[in-house]
Design a protein around this nucleic acid. Structure first.
Lengths: 233, 233
DNA sequence: GACAGCATTATGTATGCACATATTCGAGTC
DNA sequence: GACTCGAATATGTGCATACATAATGCTGTC
C-alpha cells in the first residue's frame, strides 16, 4: 500500500521527503511528469497525490511555476458539528431534552446583526436544555427566521430539538461558527445549575439556506467542557 | 463552468438536487455509470464529483451498496491555526512579542499526560506574551520536550517566538487541539492585565514529530476573543 | 435450515492520451 | 529601455479503458 504507483504511496513518499527536509519549506519540487517517471507511475497519479497535499496546505501549486513546499504549513483543525443528541450518545450517555421557553419575538440586535436581518423581522425564539445522563449538558438559545421557515411557527418543539427538526426540514447552504468564553449570566445559572460568572464555553452558529438566513443558535456548555479535535498535518 | 461535463458542474448539480429534496436524506442516488450517462460525461468525472462530496460529508458511499444522501449532514468547521504573528498582522495590527520566563523544568502532570511523557522527562518551559498594537493579545505557556528537540535548550527565544522557531526547525507530523473556557488565574491576570476569574478562551495544543512528542502549548486569549470560522456545507 | 463459496455489482484506482488554462519568459518592436 | 505579444511550460481537467476491492446476495451442499 506504500508503493509509489498508488496515489497514496506517492503522497506518503512526498510527505516523507518534506519531513526529512530533503525538500525544504519554500523549495520548488520536481514537476509532475518527472516525478511520474521517477516513481514509475502515471502523471495522473502524481497529480492526485499533490492535489490533495495542496488541499491540506502542505504544498502550494501554481500553473507554470510548479509546486513548492509551503513556508508556513497552516495547521487546520477540523471541528465536527454533530447533532447534540448524537454527540451525547456517542459518549455513551443517555440523552435528554427539555424545552424551556417558546414564543415569537423580535430578534435582539446581536442576533439580527449575525443573520443580516432588519429589527422588524419576525423570529421564533426557543430556549432548550440538553441533558446527558440526566445532568445539564448544554443550554440552547435559538432564533428561527419565520420568513424563511414559516412552518416552524406552529411546530411542536417539545419532543424533538429544533436542531434535528431543522436539519430534516430546511436545506442548509452555509453557516458560520464563533467560539468564545463567556461569563455565566443569571438565566444560564438557573438553567445549568451553575454559579453566576463561571466561565462557559459558548458557541454561536448562524445558518443560511439558499437565499435567506435560517437560524441563529447560541450554545452554553457546562463548565469544563472541551472541544477536542485532531490537527491535520 | 456549470455544465455537467465538468466535475464542478456535476457536483453543483448533485448539490442542487439534494437541496431541492429531489434526493432526500437517506436516499440512494443513481450509480456512477448511470449518472455519467445522464450527464453525458465520463464515469471518472462523476466519481471525482461524488468523492469530494463524500469528503465534505454530504453523501456517504459504500462499495456495492452505492451512494446515499447523508442523514445528518455533519457540519465541519475548519479552524486555521496560523502563526500568531501572522494572525495579528492579518488583522492590520502591529505585532509585539515578549519572553516572560524561560528555564528547564519537570512537566506538570497535565502536560506530561497530554504529551504521553513520563514525569521524569526534561522539558523547556517558556512563558511569553504576544502583543497587538502594544496591548496584550494572548499569553503563551509552552513546554518543549528536550528529548525530541535538544537544540532548544540553548536557543535564544527572546526575539522570535518558539512558535515560529519550532515550525522552521522541527518537522511536525500530527497534533491535537483542545478549546475550553477557563477562569483567569493570578499569573494570567498579571500578564494580561485582567481581573482574576474573568473567562478566558483557552487553546491547548499538543504536537508530535515523527515518533516523539515535541511540544505542548496553552494559549490564554484576552477576554472577548472569538474564533470565527465558516461551516462547510 | 445453516453455511461455505462463488457470482454480481458499485465504488476505487491506475493508465495513456488529449486538450485547456494560467503564468512566465524571451524575442521582437517601437 | 519599455512594452507587446507569442512560445514554452507546469498544472488542471476530461475521457475511455482496465482491473482491483469490498460488500451483497444467491446457490448449492451438507
Amino acid at each position: 500500500m506504500s508503493d509509489t504507483n498508488t496515489w497514496q504511496g506517492v503522497q506518503d513518499e512526498v510527505r516523507r521527503r518534506i519531513r526529512a527536509r530533503q525538500w525544504k519549506p519554500g523549495d520548488l519540487i520536481p514537476n509532475e511528469a518527472d516525478l511520474a517517471t521517477e516513481f514509475g507511475c502515471a502523471r495522473t497519479t502524481v497529480n492526485r497525490a499533490l492535489r490533495e497535499l495542496a488541499g491540506a496546505g502542505l504544498v502550494e501549486r501554481r500553473r507554470k511555476s510548479g509546486t513548492r513546499v509551503a513556508l508556513h504549513p497552516v495547521g487546520k483543525a477540523v471541528i465536527e458539528i454533530p447533532v447534540i443528541r448524537q454527540e451525547i450518545e456517542a459518549g455513551g450517555q443517555r440523552y435528554g431534552y427539555g424545552l424551556l421557553t417558546h414564543g415569537t419575538a423580535r430578534p435582539p440586535a446581536r442576533v439580527a446583526y449575525a443573520l443580516g436581518l432588519g429589527d422588524a423581522a419576525r423570529t421564533l425564539h426557543l430556549s432548550a436544555i440538553h441533558l446527558a445522563d440526566g445532568a445539564p449538558y448544554v443550554l440552547e438559545d435559538r432564533w428561527i427566521n419565520l420568513a424563511a421557515v414559516p412552518q416552524a411557527e406552529h411546530h411542536d418543539f417539545s419532543r424533538k430539538s429544533a436542531n434535528e427538526w431543522l436539519l430534516e426540514t430546511v436545506p442548509v447552504a452555509r453557516g458560520e461558527l464563533a467560539i468564545s468564553a463567556q461569563p455565566c449570566g443569571p438565566d444560564e445559572a438557573r438553567a445549568l445549575d451553575v454559579t453566576e460568572g463561571t466561565p462557559l464555553l459558548t458557541l454561536e452558529r448562524s445558518t443560511w439556506g439558499l437565499d435567506a438566513p435560517v437560524t441563529f443558535v447560541r450554545l452554553w456548555h457546562m463548565p469544563g467542557h472541551r472541544i477536542v479535535s485532531p490537527i491535520a498535518g
